[in-house]
């Protein structure tokens, strides 16, 4: 039983990391109709920025802040230089963002060197708690807590603030929100920056959990995030959370019991969801995206 609980906790914490990347991606995808394959690259930059700042300052909080700022800045530059010229054209978006993903990965090697970097866990988050026969790794519990806090914060902002209402309305009907006097392009930039910052936060939290960072990690996690967005329904934050937890937990269990099929189970979940709910589990009913 304790094994199952431990695997479940690992799965939830993995799911929370995927959620942090997918939450930004689902907003960008849902609101802006942009397929951003460079999103994983921003996750990797967040991880490297966090590791680098932690080695400089030994402050985990500062390293997280540095990663978030890195994500905001890369998001701003990416929207302005890469995305803006290709709004409305999915093929061009896929090509240019995949290319930019490679650029981001290679730039990591240029700036930080080609070798894998070790990532430390801050001392106060190292170790574990033992409750009965169950061992809870502190850092995994921390990731779960941060993931839930981000989810709650996003829900509160989206449900109760004016800007949240505008974003939700923009996901449903971009044209109408403009006809009501909202400059949706400005909102796009803000959402793109916040989405990128969430990916970078996910990267910074992932690094101590895995113990290492490497330039190609962005591509691996970026694919997971896309699958989660498709399963959860584009534009839906609760959908992304549920889908990320589903993918995280099923992956950890499969990796333990049937490692050869750990990636296949993710694809299987997506396959089943697409057959029965092509719009995803929690697609917003009012999506027209004119």
């Amino acid at each position: 039983m304790e094994l199952i609980i431990n695997l479940a906790i690992n799965g939830i914490s993995t799911g929370m990391l995927i959620f942090l990347i997918a939450a930004g991606l689902t907003l960008i995808f849902g609101l802006m109709d942009v397929l951003n394959f460079a999103h994983g690259g921003i996750f990797a930059w967040g991880a490297y920025a966090g590791v680098w700042f932690f080695s400089l300052t030994q402050s985990f909080l500062l390293s997280i802040l540095a990663a978030v700022v890195t994500g905001l800045l890369i998001g701003l530059v990416t929207e302005y230089l890469i995305i803006r010229p290709v709004y409305g054209n999915h093929i061009q978006q896929i090509l240019i963002t995949l290319g930019f993903m490679l650029v981001l990965s290679e730039m990591l090697k240029v700036v930080f060197g080609p070798d894998i970097k070790a990532a430390e866990t801050p001392s106060y988050l190292s170790g574990s708690w033992t409750i009965g026969d169950v061992t809870i790794i502190k850092y995994r519990a921390f990731i779960i807590a941060v993931g839930f806090l981000v989810f709650i914060a996003m829900q509160l902002i989206l449900k109760h603030s004016k800007i949240g209402l505008i974003v939700r309305a923009g996901v449903m009907d971009r044209e109408m929100i403009q006809a009501l006097g909202v400059n949706i392009r400005k909102v796009f930039v803000g959402v793109f920056m916040v989405g990128s910052a969430l990916a970078a936060l996910g990267g910074a939290l992932f690094a101590p959990s895995s113990g290492v960072v490497y330039a190609e990690m962005g591509m691996e996690f970026g694919i997971f995030a896309f699958i989660v967005v498709i399963i959860g329904g584009m534009g839906s934050i609760p959908g992304s959370l549920i889908a990320a937890l589903l993918v995280g937990i099923s992956n950890v269990f499969m990796a333990y019991y049937l490692p050869i099929l750990s990636m296949a189970v993710t694809m299987l979940i997506m396959f089943v969801v697409l057959i029965f709910k092509p719009q995803g589990l929690f697609s917003t009913s009012g999506v027209s995206n004119k």
């Binding site: 309305a169 449903m172 109408m176 009012g286």
Partner: peptide
């Protein structure tokens, strides 16, 4: 469009433009 709306023109489209989830 958003500047035109701010000048004082309200628009009721053919499909009503209601945000269904709001």
């Amino acid at each position: 469009p958003y500047e035109i709306a701010k000048k004082g023109i309200g628009y009721v489209p053919e499909d009503q433009g209601i945000f269904y989830d709001l």
